[in-house]
Design a binder for these strands. Sequence first.
DNA 1: ATATACCCGACTAAAATAGTCAAGTTTTTG
DNA 2: CAAAAACTTGACTATTTTAGTCGGGTATAT
Lengths: 140, 140
Amino acid sequence: MKLNTKSRYAVMALADMAVFSSDNAVSLRDISLRQGISLLYLEQIFLRLKKNNIVKSVRGINGGYILVKSPKELKISDILSALDQKVKTIGCKKDSKKSCNGKSTKCITHNFWDELDIHINSFFENKKLSDLLKNREARI
Amino acid sequence: MKLNTKSRYAVMALADMAVFSSDNAVSLRDISLRQGISLLYLEQIFLRLKKNNIVKSVRGINGGYILVKSPKELKISDILSALDQKVKTIGCKKDSKKSCNGKSTKCITHNFWDELDIHINSFFENKKLSDLLKNREARI
DNA sequence: ATATACCCGACTAAAATAGTCAAGTTTTTG
DNA sequence: CAAAAACTTGACTATTTTAGTCGGGTATAT
Ligand code: FES
Ligand code: FES
């Protein structure tokens, strides 16, 4: 059960922005250098973050991205859903009539996986970006 | 963030065994028919479950598999680790000196992912196979 | 004997992932 | 104005992972 790198880098990059926030925008180039993430990849990621209103962009020289919400208000779950990183640990859709094995009744494990999803989602719901910055020993 | 089908089927098959437990062994053929899981795939899964001492086998006619522990004692985490389904949401290894981005210091998000892993693992640690069987409306 | 059911390694098709590439557009600054 | 910085966007690709299948076993109850 792994998280994909897009989501991981997204959280990482936004945490970087939160640390290096100033009045001006933060450029992807800077994030790329500080965090060691491919610039091209970051572009792809920030495209989605922008579309989902997590960041806004400033074009041109000295441009970059700015967090729409403050780190204290930005939930990690918001970031993940911007990247379509749904926490859906199994394929069976909650609303669908079809169960995981094609039968009409839910399988015996169904409720269990539902509980798992809820458990994981609540973690992401309750964590804010600012929580990542607290008592970090490691320098960025 | 998805769980693979091997793990899902393993839990499903063991839950089936728990329900249809009797004095004799449960054959994969029966599980396959009841749960709609490919017999060949089940064989592969049970091979690992056996190697990791989750089930024991009885060969020959009327053979099959038997749960080593009672459902009340069998933790879901035991099942998952039998299938190498580690809950390691990101690639960075805890013990390794190397961080996720190849630098020597841990990245800013490291502790967060660690917490996430702990959060998920504790869920699996605290759930027993018998918990899946409680108040299920759906028949197998 | 023989049918049933476990045993085991190797193989493969399909999907997902991680990331690159190319070709832009916008804005600031000298 | 010209040039550089930096965002915009869709398409493309190599690699890896997943989800199985296949073939050829071995053990045992009847
Ligand atoms: S029916 Fe939903 S997980 Fe099986
Ligand atoms: S250093 Fe461990 S997750 Fe980045």
